[in-house]
C-alpha cells in the first residue's frame, strides 16, 4: 500500500484568546491523512472554529505545532496556506461581494494568479459542475440561500486547494440543498480532496460522513467511525450532543437487527422499514 501523506498534523496545540481565562484549545493532537472525509462535531463553544482557524494560519498556536502538508503554520502566511487549504465559512454573505456569480469565481482565481485563459475555462467548468451556469450573470444577492452556499463552495473549489473545510454547511439549508451539499462533498472527496465538515447536524454526519471527531471544552474526546462515535452514551453526554430518532430506535432493536459491522444510517432506516413491512 502506498504511504498516505499527512494533510494535517497537529501536535500538542494549546490556544487561549487574550481576553479569556481558560484555554480554548487544550493539548490537541490530530492527524488527518490526505483523502479523508471527516466531520468535526461538538457543542457551541467547544473550540471547533478556533481549531479550523489554526489550519489556515488565521490563529497561531501558543504552544505546540500545526502543520499543513508538512508546512508549519508559524512560518507561512495565510495567503500561502490558503493555496493548500480552502475554508468555506458559515455565512456565505460574508464571502460574496462581486457583481455577478461569474465575476465572483473569476475574482478568486485572479487572486491566485491564474492567467486569463485559465480563468475562463475554469469558471465555465465550475459553473457547470455546481449547477450555477444559468445564474452566471446574476448578482450573488439574487440567489437563494442554497445557491449562495453552492457559490462559496464553487469559488473555493475553483482554485483547487488540497484540503477543503466547510463550517456548518447545512445551517439554514432545506432538505434538497442539504442533499446537494452532501453530493458535492462526496464528489470532492472522490477526487482525492481531504474534506473536513464542521457541523452540529448530527443527522447529516450520520448520513453522509464516514468518520467523526468529537470536541468538548477545547479537547478532542473521540474519533472514529461516525455511527460508533455518535451513538456512544458517554461521548454524547460529555459533548452535549443528542441522539437523532433513528439512533433511539436502533438502540431498542440492536440485539435483534443482526450483527452488521458497518453501521450506516440509510441501511438502518431501510431495515426498520422492511421490518415494519414484513411484520404487520
Amino acid at each position: 500500500m502506498p504511504l498516505q501523506k499527512l494533510a494535517v498534523e497537529i501536535e500538542n496545540l494549546w490556544f487561549k484568546y487574550p481576553e479569556t481565562k481558560n484555554w480554548t484549545l487544550k493539548n490537541i493532537d490530530l492527524k488527518i491523512k490526505e483523502g479523508e472525509l471527516i466531520a468535526l462535531v461538538g457543542e457551541n463553544g467547544a473550540g471547533k472554529t478556533t481549531l479550523i482557524k489554526h489550519l489556515i494560519g488565521l490563529l497561531k498556536p501558543q504552544k505546540g505545532t500545526v502543520k499543513i502538508y508538512g508546512k508549519n503554520t508559524r512560518n507561512h502566511t495565510v495567503a500561502e496556506l490558503a493555496r493548500i487549504i480552502g475554508i468555506i465559512f458559515q455565512n456565505p454573505d460574508h464571502q460574496l461581494f462581486s457583481e455577478t456569480v461569474e465575476k465572483e469565481i473569476e475574482f478568486t482565481l485572479k487572486n491566485f494568479g491564474y492567467t486569463k485563459q485559465q480563468i475562463k475555462s475554469i469558471v465555465q467548468k465550475v459553473l457547470k459542475e455546481f449547477n450555477l451556469d444559468k445564474q452566471a450573470d446574476k448578482s450573488p444577492l439574487e440567489l437563494s440561500q442554497g445557491e449562495r452556499k453552492r457559490l462559496t463552495i464553487a469559488f473555493t473549489v475553483a482554485y483547487n486547494p488540497q484540503i477543503i473545510v466547510l463550517d456548518e454547511p447545512t445551517i439554514g439549508q432545506d432538505y434538497k440543498s442539504k442533499q446537494q451539499i452532501a453530493q458535492i462533498v462526496k464528489q470532492l472527496n472522490k477526487k482525492g480532496k481531504t474534506v473536513i465538515i464542521v457541523t452540529h447536524d448530527i443527522k447529516f454526519a450520520l448520513q453522509h460522513i464516514p468518520e467523526t471527531i468529537v470536541m468538548s471544552k477545547g479537547k478532542i474526546i473521540a474519533r472514529g467511525p461516525t455511527w460508533k462515535v455518535l451513538t456512544e452514551d458517554k461521548i454524547v453526554k460529555q459533548a452535549k450532543l443528542t441522539k437523532p430518532l433513528i439512533v433511539r430506535i436502533y438502540e431498542r432493536i440492536k440485539d435483534k437487527i443482526g450483527g452488521e459491522k458497518q453501521l450506516n444510517y440509510n441501511r438502518i432506516e431501510q431495515q426498520i422499514l422492511e421490518a415494519i413491512n414484513n411484520a404487520y
Binding site: R248, I249, R252, I253, I257, I272, I276, A279, Y280
Partner: peptide, 28 residues
Amino acid sequence: KGYIKLARKVLEDEKVLLEVVENAFTKI
C-alpha cells in the same frame, strides 16, 4: 396495511413508534 389507528398512534406519541418497531423485529 390497514393499521390506521396504529399509524395515528405512532404519529401521536414517540413511545408508540419505538414499541411498534421493536415489536416488528421481535415478530420477525
